[in-house]
Design a protein around this nucleic acid. Sequence first.
DNA 1: GCCGCCCCCAAGAAGCGCTTATGCTCGATC
DNA 2: GATCGAGCATAAGCGCTTCTTGGGGGCGGC
Lengths: 302, 302
Amino acid sequence: MIEARHLRVLRAVATTGSFSAAGRELGCTQPAVSQQMKALEASVGTPLLVRAGREMRLTQAGEALVRHASGILAGLTAAEEEVAAIAGLRAGRVRLVSFPSGSSTLVPTALAALRAAHPGTRVSLEEAEPPRSVELLREGDCDLALAFRYEGAAVAEDWDDLVVRPLLADRLVALVPERHRLARAESVAIGELAQEPWIAGCPRCRGQLVQVCEGAGFTPRIDFATDDYPAVVGLVGAGLGVAVLPQLAVESVRPRGARVVRLEPEVRRQIVALTLPDLAQVPTVAATLEQLARAARGVGRS
Amino acid sequence: MIEARHLRVLRAVATTGSFSAAGRELGCTQPAVSQQMKALEASVGTPLLVRAGREMRLTQAGEALVRHASGILAGLTAAEEEVAAIAGLRAGRVRLVSFPSGSSTLVPTALAALRAAHPGTRVSLEEAEPPRSVELLREGDCDLALAFRYEGAAVAEDWDDLVVRPLLADRLVALVPERHRLARAESVAIGELAQEPWIAGCPRCRGQLVQVCEGAGFTPRIDFATDDYPAVVGLVGAGLGVAVLPQLAVESVRPRGARVVRLEPEVRRQIVALTLPDLAQVPTVAATLEQLARAARGVGRS
DNA sequence: GCCGCCCCCAAGAAGCGCTTATGCTCGATC
DNA sequence: GATCGAGCATAAGCGCTTCTTGGGGGCGGC
């Protein structure tokens, strides 16, 4: 087996014409060069260099090897370059999955910052929510998943084998029509909305809503359900019912005809980034994760 | 510095999908594979493989490396192939230099045998005699030189740094016109030809002739000098003088009108092959040398 | 004739790579 | 739900490789 290191040395010897000069060029001693050349000759089974007086000449086999060396070493260098570009965030792609419309502020901010910091990187964005997003992660179809979990949820997801990075604690707020009796209230307890018609969000949020309401002693009467947050806001604004939404979801929607009222006691969902332990070491993934965390801090502060 | 060995292992891991299988394919243990992959990841500074549950997936950097690997490894294999062909005498060239017309039997026999044994090898043949041929050797313009030296010559060549392989001891014979008084003699002493007109060979042979004659107490009267042996024979055959020639040179010429008489005391020249110590290790050179020696044994036997 | 350059050789020390042995995780099976 | 098999990680031990240092010899230039 010819080693690339040997080819590098052979080429240096061929160009400089001496072992000593090659050693200087490669940053090692002359005996090291001499030994490597001996090893290479032994491994190919034929002399490669002829010591004729002072000068060092290549044999035909040596010439053949040097001829191939440039291509091989160029290939190695190209490979190193490409990998270094990925490692150095000058290239590389991240496949990001986020829950639908949940990341309307976080993701754009993070991706904008990522692009500004590392213009060579590319991000693909898809929408899915757990458990689908976790499945995508585990099957290798994405690198990073944005998800959320409700604090104190009934069934905890099995994320034990994943890297779970909390990004943001997002509190729930009540949304009531602006003519509603509680529209001007400082805050509202969920029980006070027991008799209202409800407009629910996505299936998972709906489950959480039911759980919270049952904790307060009633079962909500759900008239509408949609996972489209602007639609929920619109329905509330039209006076068709009340809703409970994550604050982050409300923030990106203009609440026409609806009012946001703080919910007491506080119910929060935690927005997290999920990835595989190994993927967390991949530079592009780590950088994206970092920008998501930074974006989350920005949202939390505002 | 990426090592080719690592690429080979990475490729095996990528194709087999597991470290254990790669180890089996490569004939080493699983920890060896594991360690090499760790070393490779460390050397490029980014993960290359993602351990997701049971299966082993490539990261983007890993894919890039595998993509380059095939080309690099193919280059290495091609280089090994080419060198192995030279080492295995399936290819390769020898640049042979021989003294003019001195090798009319030796060289053709040897080269024919070489070609028969190793059809892929190529031999280039040039004519020169020492010191020119030695110069060509030292300057790297030829690989193997056929030369000769007279035993007991006045000036010994400085062949100390060369490989000198004696091939043949070639005795000198006298050539006299067939009507000459000595034409039927069993043998002739050089002194008996003191009064004859001489036909001399090449410059070096002429020098040797003069030296031998002076050793016998006379200076030959040289009427003609040519390094063309058939011409010498022709001149003698035409009765224009006598000559002393190497037996080998006479053998390849039909002695029309001339007779060969053994010379006493015996004067011999030694035909040798010369090469550089390092070049003697080159398979093609060694093989050619061997065939020359074998051809010489054949000539000596006949 | 001396000096400098360059190569080879030998010995010692450091580093590297492989193997064996062991523990752990995961997935399939009963 | 427990067991079993497969596969990876880790650690220890060993041998090999490879480097450096130091010394010797040869060749060319001043």
